[in-house]
Amino acid sequence: MTTRAALALCSALPLRDVAADAADSEWLHLLPGGGTVRTGDGRGPYTVDDYEALAAVSLGDGDRLVLDECHSTDLAAPKGQSAPARGWIVALEARADGIWGQVEWTGTGRQLRADKAYRGISPVIAHTKDNRIVAIKRASLVNDPNLQGLTALHQKESEMDFRAMLIELLKLDTDADDAAIEAAL
């Protein structure tokens, strides 16, 4: 009896140059901490239940997330226009001040970064009808970021947690929420 086998064509995975990756990567602030994500344009506010779970589900099976310019993946690509990656988010990490993404820059992205052509990052998020964030899908280099509380591109990453510092200065409980901080201020 003859058995038929199905063929699956698989693309090759590129080998990573670890030394180049280390030189061409950095961590960028993608989502502010505190459980509530506020915007400048009035959408939201959005909530995050579990930052570590959100980071894990957003990269899923280890795929990379695109970092483009001005949301070109969502706005230009559907119209058949160019939407090249300027970097790839290869890791996500939940920290006290939110979610950070490790970006491996493309050559053009590296040049845009060096030229300080953009001042901020704008993540694309998936959320439920009740505004609970369930995934980070990708991010864009922008000059007018919508999310409040993100670290700007042109300042150094800091271990200082301003929220914790405010709580301490205002002599609040360490688990004080945004409403308690606002009331104390």
Rank of each mutant, 00 (worst) to 15 (best):
L13S: 13
E93V: 03
G87R: 09
I167G: 04
L92M: 10
L169N: 06
A183D: 14
S25T: 15
L75G: 14
E104Q: 14
A55G: 05
R138A: 15
S122I: 11
E69K: 14
E182I: 13
R86V: 05
V90N: 04
Y46I: 03
F162R: 14
W105S: 01
P78L: 01
V134G: 02
K116N: 10
E26P: 07
G120S: 09
G107T: 14
A176Y: 05
I133W: 04
C10G: 05
A94Y: 03
L67E: 14
D50G: 08
D63V: 12
A152Y: 08
R132D: 01
T3R: 09
R113A: 09
W100H: 08
E157D: 04
I99W: 01
I133L: 00
P84T: 02
V90H: 05
D24K: 15
P32S: 11
W100P: 05
I133E: 02
Q155L: 11
C10Y: 03
V48F: 03
K129T: 08
Q81L: 03
R86I: 03
D173N: 03
T106P: 13
P84F: 00
D61C: 04
G101Y: 02
D41E: 10
A5L: 15
R113I: 11
K116F: 08
L31H: 09
V48K: 01
R138G: 12
V90G: 06
P32Y: 08
D161G: 07
V37A: 06
I121S: 02
L141M: 07
L15T: 10
L65I: 06
E52L: 04
G40P: 03
G33K: 09
R64C: 10
A94M: 04
I167E: 03
L9C: 02
A23N: 15
T39H: 09
K171D: 13
T47W: 01
M1C: 09
F162C: 14
E157M: 07
L13E: 13
G109L: 09
S58Q: 02
D24Q: 15
G35C: 10
P123Y: 05
G87T: 05
G109Q: 10
D68H: 02
L112D: 14
D50A: 11
A53T: 04
A94E: 00
S58V: 00
V57T: 14
L30K: 11
T47E: 02
A76N: 10
G35V: 12
K116Q: 14
D161V: 07
G40N: 08
R64N: 11
H71S: 01
L112M: 14
E104F: 12
G42I: 12
N146H: 05
L141T: 09
D173P: 07
G60D: 08
E182W: 14
D173Y: 00
K116Y: 03
L170G: 00
I133S: 04
D173L: 04
L147S: 03
V124K: 00
R119W: 06
L31F: 10
D49R: 11
A83G: 06
Q155D: 15
L15F: 12
R95K: 14
V48W: 07
S140V: 07
K116S: 12
D17K: 12
A96H: 00
A126M: 10
R95D: 12
A135S: 15
Q148G: 02
L166P: 04
A91L: 11
P84R: 07
V18K: 15
G33Y: 11
I121Y: 01
T36N: 04
